[in-house]
C-alpha cells in the first residue's frame, strides 16, 4: 500500500492529522526563566506532567501518558549513564535531544506501520551561569527548536505563538513574577484550545475566534479560578540557589500559595 512514494507522503499526512487531533484536549505547558532559575508550569488532572530528568534538566510534556513515560525513561537512562561514564557537565539538553530523542521520535513518526509517539516535549536546562538557561521543544514528528528566555507547548503552533506573544510582553524578574506570568500564559493557551474545541463542535458561544479572545488580566484570573477548582496546579523549579548538584524541585502547595497572586492563592488546597 505504501510502496509508492506519494502514498507514503499521504500516509504521513494522515498521521499528522490524527496526531493533531490527539493534543486538542491536552494541557499547555509553560517554561520561563527568572532570577531564581527556570520555572515550569502546567495544570493536570491526576497524572503529573512535569519531571526531573537530571541535575539541571527538567521536562514538561503533553500527550499520551504511556508514550511520555517511555520517552522519559529513555531520557533518564541516557542522562544517567552518560553522567556516570563521563561527567554531569557532559549531560546537556542539546545532546540528549539532538542525538538521542529527536531521531527516535522522527523514526517512529515516519514508520507508518508502527504507532507514533503521541507527545510534545519541553526540556528546560539551567545554565551554569545566569543568562545561559535554555529550552528545547520537540514536536511529535521529531522537529525541535531551541529557545532561551521562555518556551511553551500547546495543541497547535498557532496557540503556541499566541502564548509566546503574550509571554514576550511580560516583564519577569522574581520567582513570584514568573509564577504569575506563567499561569496567565497558561490561561491564554488553555482558553484558546478550549475555544477551538467548542468551535469544532459547533457551540454557539464559540463565535469569537481564538485570536479575538480577551487577554486582560482580570479575565484570565476569572478563567483560572474555574480551572483551579477542577485541576491541580503543577509548578517545578530548577533552582539556582539550591545547594548540591540536583537543582530540580517541585513547588509544594504552601510555597505556591505564597507565590501565586492574591486573586488565585486562596483557591489552592
Amino acid at each position: 500500500m505504501y510502496e509508492e512514494p506519494y502514498k507514503w507522503v499521504e500516509a504521513v499526512g494522515n498521521r499528522r492529522t490524527y496526531l493533531d487531533e490527539q493534543f486538542k484536549e491536552g494541557a499547555p505547558v509553560v517554561g520561563v526563566t527568572c532570577e531564581r532559575g527556570i520555572l515550569l508550569m502546567t495544570m493536570s488532572k491526576g497524572t503529573p506532567k512535569l519531571y526531573e530528568i537530571y541535575d539541571r534538566l527538567g521536562l514538561g510534556g503533553m500527550g499520551h501518558p504511556a508514550d511520555l513515560e517511555k520517552l522519559r525513561f529513555n531520557l533518564l537512562e541516557m542522562a544517567h549513564v552518560e553522567g556516570f561514564n563521563r561527567s554531569a557537565s557532559d549531560v546537556t539538553g542539546g545532546r540528549l535531544v539532538k542525538y538521542g530523542m529527536a531521531p527516535a521520535i522522527k523514526q517512529a513518526f515516519e514508520e507508518v506501520f508502527k504507532a507514533p509517539f503521541i507527545v510534545k516535549i519541553l526540556l528546560a536546562e539551567l545554565g551554569q551561569k545566569a543568562g545561559k538557561d535554555g529550552f528545547l521543544t520537540i514536536n511529535y514528528d521529531g522537529t525541535f527548536e531551541e529557545k532561551s528566555q521562555y518556551a511553551v507547548l500547546a495543541a497547535t503552533s498557532a496557540i503556541e505563538q499566541k502564548m509566546a506573544g503574550y509571554l514576550r510582553e511580560q516583564s519577569i524578574a522574581s520567582l513570584e513574577g514568573a509564577v504569575d506570568a506563567a499561569i496567565r500564559t497558561w490561561a491564554v493557551g488553555d482558553r484558546a484550545q478550549r475555544r477551538a474545541l467548542d468551535e469544532g463542535e459547533g457551540h454557539d458561544e464559540a463565535r469569537t475566534s481564538p485570536d479575538q479572545l480577551a487577554m486582560d488580566t482580570e479575565t484570565l484570573y476569572a478563567y483560572l479560578r474555574r480551572c483551579i477548582a477542577e485541576k491541580t496546579v503543577e509548578c517545578a523549579l530548577l533552582d539556582r540557589h539550591v545547594q548540591g548538584p540536583s537543582k530540580y524541585r517541585a513547588l509544594g502547595v504552601d510555597e505556591l500559595k505564597a507565590l501565586l497572586p492574591n486573586e488565585l492563592s486562596p483557591l489552592l488546597s
Binding site: E52, Y54, F73, L76, H80, G83, S246
Partner: peptide, 16 residues
C-alpha cells in the same frame, strides 16, 4: 560513591 550517587538519583527520578 559514584555508583550510589547515580543510583539514588536514578531511583528518585524514575520512581518519583
Amino acid at each position: 560513591a559514584r555508583i550510589l550517587e547515580h543510583s539514588f538519583k536514578y531511583f528518585r527520578r524514575t520512581q518519583l
